[in-house]
């Protein structure tokens, strides 16, 4: 479970004046939930995600991550794949295990299992530049899952992909979520992606960055083509879109 209490972030602007990147946010994310944060650029959605990840320190407020007995509770998928260009797909996925001191045989077994899960069989030995954009992002997801963190944070992971690949990646992500029961916090600027994937959607707005509304998206699981024909799916999208204006 992730508890965010009055967390805010203030940057120094170009002339040294304080700029509110994020006005105080309160949010509780139960274990196993798929939560999306949607908003325009500059609304602080990435900042909030990076605060949860520990990549930024909040200016104020309190963040609690309840994940007992786990050394590395957080997996992070960046906008870009951020693969190491000199490592093969397999070695990239195994990277956190290698550096974390997991025995080679065990790490290899885990990496092979994940390669299967994200559908990269046959590309174990390929270098990142030999993979397509979608395949690279799949490898990045597998790497984030390699050490089995209970929480997966994703920062517009499919933003750079074409629409068809993106749709397919969304379905694959839902499958992974069902299979692994991870808590997922997913940042996007697409209302469709947010409505399709999530249990709960946080809508944010910019200048200053703040939470505009929070919605429970109670569309039935598993989601698929039928979801996209559901009038309520379109209602959710329309609501989010209105709130983003």
């Amino acid at each position: 479970m992730i508890t965010i209490e009055a967390v805010s972030k203030r940057f120094a602007g170009p002339k040294g004046e304080p700029v509110d990147a994020l006005t105080p946010v309160d949010l509780t994310i139960p274990a196993g939930q798929f939560l999306s944060i949607v908003g325009p650029s500059g609304c602080g959605k990435s900042t909030l995600l990076r605060i949860i990840a520990g990549l930024e320190t909040p200016s104020d407020g309190k963040l609690t991550i309840a994940a007992t007995g786990v050394a590395r509770p957080i997996g992070f998928v960046f906008q870009e794949p951020v693969l190491l260009p000199w490592l093969s797909t397999l070695a990239n996925i195994r990277f956190p295990l290698d550096t974390g001191g997991v025995p080679r045989a065990e790490a290899d077994a885990t990496a092979h299992r994940l390669i299967k899960m994200v559908g990269l069989q046959g590309f174990e030995d390929a270098l990142p530049h030999q993979l397509s954009g979608g395949m690279r992002q799949r490898a990045a997801i597998a790497r984030a899952l390699s050490y089995d963190p209970p929480i997966l944070l994703m920062d517009e992971p499919f933003g750079a992909l074409d629409l068809l690949t993106r749709d397919r990646m969304n379905d694959e992500l839902l499958q992974i979520w069902r299979a692994t029961k991870k808590t997922i916090v997913f940042v996007t600027h697409s209302v469709e992606e947010a409505a399709y994937l999530s249990d709960r959607v946080v809508v944010m707005s910019a200048r200053p960055g703040r939470v505009r509304a929070i919605h429970d998206v109670d569309l039935p699981h598993p989601r698929g083509e039928a979801t996209k024909l559901d009038p309520r799916f379109h209602q959710f999208m329309a609501t989010f879109r209105r709130e983003l204006k």
Binding site: G54, R72, V82, F95, T99, G100, Y147
Partner: peptide, 22 residues
Amino acid sequence: AKAYRDLAQIVGLTTWQRLTRI
């Protein structure tokens, strides 16, 4: 790239590991 520093932090690399591995 900053993203690789972020990766190092998320994955929990030591300073030495970051130097030699990244």
